[in-house]
Design a protein around this nucleic acid. Structure first.
Lengths: 353, 353
DNA sequence: ATGAAAGCGCTAACAT
DNA sequence: ATGTTAGCGCTTTCAT
C-alpha cells in the first residue's frame, strides 16, 4: 500500500486535515507543524494521489490531445511530432499532464463504440482539450460543443463559438509560394491541394487564387488537382499534369504539403522531367526531408512546435479565465509562415516565360 | 453538473449499486432492469467518471510513456513519433489511455523538483510505465525499482530484474552494416558512435567489433569517434576522420544513427570528398530522410513502430499476469533489423582495396 | 492553528 | 435479483 495522508497524520500526531493543509501550503497551519509534516512526508516517500484529489477538486490537471486521421489529413509522421512536443512542453511547464488520444490508427479506425471524442474527455475528466487532424466532415465535428471544458482546434475552423483555433496563416503562405513562382516568370501555375475536408486545403487554395488574381491570371480549375496529402497522390498529380495538352501544362506547381511535393517530384523525374528546369515545385510544411531531397525543396515553413505550444497556451488561458472570470480570450491565432527558397524553383523554360 | 449513477438510479427507481452493476455488465442484475438502466443512461448522456472509478478499483487504465532526452539520445524527431504511435495504438486497443511525459524539453530540462519519474507515476497512479530515451547515467536510472507497477524500457538495459526491455538487435544490426562494407572490400572501417551512456552505443560498437574480428581485422580505437547522435557530431567526425594520416583514413564508416550519418556526409561533401566513391557510409535507423538524401543512404532499418507496440504489449501482459498469477514473462525482446542497401556504399577507391 | 464531519462518484462486500 | 453499508484518499466546510 502506498502511504497516505492518514499514515502521516498518525505518525505526526495530527489530523489528516492538518496534513493536507501543510502539504498544500495553506497558511492556516503552524509553521512548526508544517515543517514536521513535510519532513515526515518526505521520509515516507509520500506522493499525493492525484486521482483522489481530482475527485474532490473536480480538476485532474490533465489536458487531452487528440491526434486524428494520421497520414490522411496532412498530419503525417514528420509533422505531428513537433506539434505534440509543443503541446507537451507547454502544458507540463504549467503543471499539467498530457493524455494522448490517437484515433484513426490501425487498431481503432473502425470501431467507435460510444467512445466518442467528447465521451473520452468526459470519462477521463480532462480539464481541457486540443485536437489536431480533425476533418470538417468528421461525424463528430459538430458535437464538440458538448464539451464542457476549454477546447482548441489546430488547423481546423471551429464548428461554433467558444471553441478556439490555431493555424498557420495558410492563405498568406500559399499566396507567397505562388507569388514566388510568379516572380520567377511562371504563368501557368498548378495547385496540388489536399483533400477538400481539411480547412487548410480551402485556405491554401484561396491564397493561390489571390496571387493569381493579383497577377491578372485567370484561375483555371483544370490546373488544380485534389490530392490527399499523401506521397502517392503527389505522384498521381504529376501524371495528371503531364497528361495535359502541351500548352496547358503547368511550368510550376504549388503543393499543399511537402510529402505531396516530394511524391510529385519523384514521379516527374521518373517521367523524364527535370526539376526545376522543366517544372518548378514548391512545397508546404518544411519537413526535414525537404532539405534533403534532390533538388532541395523550396517550401513554406510552418512553425509546427509553436502551433502546439500556442494551442496549449490557449486552453491554459481559458482555464485560468474560467476561474478568474476575465474577459473571453481571442478565439483564434494565425501563425506566420516562412518561404524557404531552395533549389526546386527556377524560371520556367523559355517558351513558358 | 455531469450526470452520475445516482441520477440514473433515481430516475429508474433502483439503487446506485444496481446501476453500477448494469452498466458494468455484471450478471447479477435482471435483464429487464439492465436494459432500462442502460437506456436511461444513454438518454441522459451518462459517462462514467473514470477518476471516481479509479479511486475505488485502484486501477486507472492508463499507461505512462516517458519520452526522455529528446534529440540527445538517439530519439530525435524522426524516430520517437513512430514509437509513440506503436505504444498508443496498442494500449488504446486494450482500452487504456496514454499519458505522455516529456522530460528534457526546453521547459523542464533544468528543474526536477521532486517530480521524479517514479513520483509522477505514483501521483497519477498509472497502471504501467514505458520509458524511451533513458540514459544509463540518469540519476534516476537506479530508482526505477521503486515503481510498483510494470515497467518496460525501450533501448535501454534495465537496472534490475523485474523491469522489462525492448530494443532492436543492435549488435547484429551493426555487425551486418559492417559486414556489408567488408564485403564491398573495405578494410579500414570507422565507427561513428553515439554517446557512451546509451545502451545502444555499446551494442552497436560490439557488433562492429565482432564483424571486424571475424574478418581478421584488428580493432583500432582511433577509428571510433564518439558522437552524440546529433548531425553536428557527425560533421565533427568527418573532420576528425579526414584529419587522420592518409593511410589510416577510413574508406567506410558505420554510423550509429542516420542523423549522424547525414551530418557526416554533408561535411564530407563540403570537404570535397565524394560519397560513395571516396568514402562509403552506412547509417542506422532508416529515418524518412535517409531515402531522400543525396546519395540515398544505405542504412540499418529499425522497426520503430514495433518497438513501441512491443513495449506496450509487454506492460499489458504483465498487467494481466499480475491479476492471474501466471508465470513471469520474458524480461526482454530483441527486434530484428534490416539492412537497406542504397547508394551511399560502394567498393573503396582502388588503393584501399 | 487545528480537528471533526461530510462527501466527491463509484464499486464491493455483505446482506436479503 | 436487488438494496444497504462502507470506503477508496483527499479536500473542504464548519466548528473550536
Amino acid at each position: 500500500m502506498a502511504v497516505t495522508i492518514k499514515d502521516i497524520a498518525k505518525i505526526v500526531g495530527v489530523s489528516p486535515t492538518a496534513v493536507s493543509r501543510a502539504l498544500n501550503d495553506h497558511r492556516d497551519i503552524g509553521e512548526e507543524t508544517r515543517a514536521k509534516i513535510k519532513r515526515v512526508a518526505q521520509e515516507l516517500g509520500y506522493r499525493r494521489n492525484a486521482i483522489a484529489r481530482g475527485l474532490v477538486t473536480r480538476k485532474t490537471d490533465t489536458i487531452g490531445l487528440f491526434v486524428l486521421g494520421r497520414g490522411a489529413t496532412g498530419f503525417g509522421d514528420p509533422f505531428a511530432y513537433e506539434v505534440i512536443l509543443g503541446v507537451m512542453d507547454t502544458v507540463s511547464a504549467a503543471g499539467y499532464d498530457l493524455v494522448l488520444y490517437g484515433v484513426g490508427g490501425p487498431s481503432n479506425s473502425g470501431r467507435c463504440d460510444g467512445a466518442s471524442y467528447v465521451g473520452k474527455c468526459k470519462e477521463r475528466q480532462v480539464d481541457g482539450v486540443i485536437m489536431m487532424g480533425l476533418r470538417t466532415d468528421d461525424p463528430q465535428y459538430g458535437s464538440l460543443g458538448d464539451l464542457d471544458v476549454p477546447c482548441v482546434l489546430i488547423d481546423v475552423a471551429p464548428p461554433q463559438d467558444g471553441i478556439g483555433f490555431v493555424a498557420s496563416d495558410n492563405v498568406l503562405g500559399a499566396k507567397n509560394a505562388t507569388e514566388h513562382l510568379l516572380s520567377l516568370g511562371h504563368r501557368r501555375i498548378a495547385m496540388l491541394n489536399g483533400h477538400a475536408h481539411a480547412t487548410v486545403s480551402a485556405e491554401r487554395l484561396e491564397g493561390y487564387k489571390i496571387a493569381l488574381m493579383n497577377a491578372g491570371i485567370a484561375y483555371d480549375p483544370a490546373l488544380t488537382f485534389e490530392g490527399d496529402f499523401s506521397s502517392d497522390s503527389g505522384a498521381r498529380a504529376a501524371e495528371y499534369f503531364m497528361a495535359l495538352p502541351r500548352d496547358m501544362r503547368p511550368t510550376g506547381v504549388v503543393a499543399a504539403s511537402d510529402v505531396m511535393a516530394i511524391g510529385l517530384m519523384q514521379m516527374l523525374k521518373a517521367m523524364g522531367m527535370r526539376v526545376p528546369q522543366d517544372v518548378s515545385v514548391v512545397g508546404f510544411d518544411d519537413i526535414p526531408s525537404a532539405a534533403h531531397v534532390d533538388p532541395p525543396l523550396t517550401t513554406v515553413r510552418q512553425a509546427r512546435y509553436d502551433l502546439g505550444a500556442t494551442a496549449a497556451r490557449m486552453v491554459l488561458q481559458r482555464l485560468e479565465e474560467g476561474r478568474s472570470g476575465m474577459a473571453f480570450p481571442p478565439p483564434g491565432f494565425r501563425l506566420a509562415t516562412n518561404l524557404i527558397v531552395r533549389s526546386s524553383t527556377a524560371p520556367p523554360p523559355c517558351r513558358g516565360a
